[in-house]
Design a protein around this nucleic acid. Structure first.
Lengths: 192, 192
DNA sequence: CGTTTACACTAGCGCTTGCTCGGTTACTCT
DNA sequence: AGAGTAACCGAGCAAGCGCTAGTGTAAACG
């Protein structure tokens, strides 16, 4: 068994698992279903992951890592103007949400199935990501770009963005970037 | 077995079930756990509900019905000013979200566990509720109170509101009404 | 060459699951 | 008193669950 590696094989299996977890939910996805999707038998699955829990943790870790990388890159690449940064952050959020959609849906809706150990470890990743958001929101507030309570604003914005996975159709006419821009415009009085 | 009644006993059992579904998730809640919480044995449970699915449907129906009633009452009781109605609708949403919190959390996060028949029936209820929102949003847009795409705005607002169940602490300093007002203020440029 | 390593297989154990069913209790209505 | 009925119990079945153990095989390595 691979204790803690990130072999390409394991990455691919993690991707397939994410898809099934989204389709069926974590609890309803059996190891036999996972194995079949991966083209192996259920016993072989435990050569790659020590138990079902570890598969869930791998899926969520993958998604959250990517979110962090993409958000940092987006912020690095743009100017220091608070409005630009806010828009960039919103775009980055939706970008990762829909390129790694399966992993993020699992992270958002199956987080509670993690055992305490895995949850604690992954919480740090998640906190690091949210810290980026809080910083951007703070700057926007300070610049008078938006108004309200910093805590509430960031929660509302993240809620609105995360909820998109429930209704957004990637095959529709609107791009994720459009969505991000519309949301930012919605909360910015100056752009009326 | 009670085919389709709403006896007080069944209502109470539904309430208890909602609580457990929130704590453990639908799939992880066994009929034995449900029975114990209700003070009966697992076999007796099927005198009240024909199967586990029906319990889930009962929980969701209860919550959605209440949401409809509360929202309609709130709209009936307030003036025709679009801003007032928007605020009233947001308040009503959070009010029902936190007085029937368990039922709504189940409705929001366990909807997919419903079998197609139950889902179809309950979708009508849900659509009726969302229609109230769309009407209110439309009026607010027409009055120039808010701006943006009517479809996107309502999705963003509902997303922000629904996501509150993930972070809002009813024992904190803020009331649900405060939350609703802050959100409305956030998306209304005129109130800056 | 022999040994190691990665990956897969078969078989099945021990347990839990949703649900059934015949029988019992307690209350209501005539 | 007797009949009807809603509520509940105890026992357990068939299916499915996560996971383990032991084995086979082919490529990689000294």
């Amino acid at each position: 068994m691979n204790v803690m590696n990130a072999s390409p094989r394991r990455k691919e299996l993690t991707r397939l698992a994410a898809q099934l977890f989204v389709q069926e939910g974590f609890d309803r996805t059996t190891v036999r279903m996972l194995a079949q999707e991966m083209g192996i038998k259920s016993g072989s699955l435990f050569h790659h992951f020590k138990d079902k829990q570890e598969i869930l943790a791998a899926v969520i870790e993958e998604g959250t890592q990517n979110a962090l990388v993409i958000a940092r890159k987006a912020l690095d690449e743009c100017a220091e103007d608070p409005e630009v940064r806010l828009r960039a952050m919103a775009r980055a959020h939706l970008e990762t949400l829909f390129t790694d959609r399966n992993a993020h849906v699992v992270a958002l809706f199956e987080w509670r199935r993690l055992d305490p150990t895995a949850s604690a470890h992954l919480s740090h990743l998640r906190d690091a990501y949210e810290a980026l958001w809080v910083a951007v929101i703070d700057d926007a507030l300070e610049a008078g770009l938006i108004h309200g309570d910093r805590f509430l604003v960031s929660r509302f914005v993240l809620g609105a963005l995360n909820w998109t996975v429930r209704w957004y159709d990637p095959n529709g006419p609107r791009s994720p970037d459009d969505l991000a821009d519309e949301l930012v415009a919605m909360i910015m009085p100056t752009s009326a």
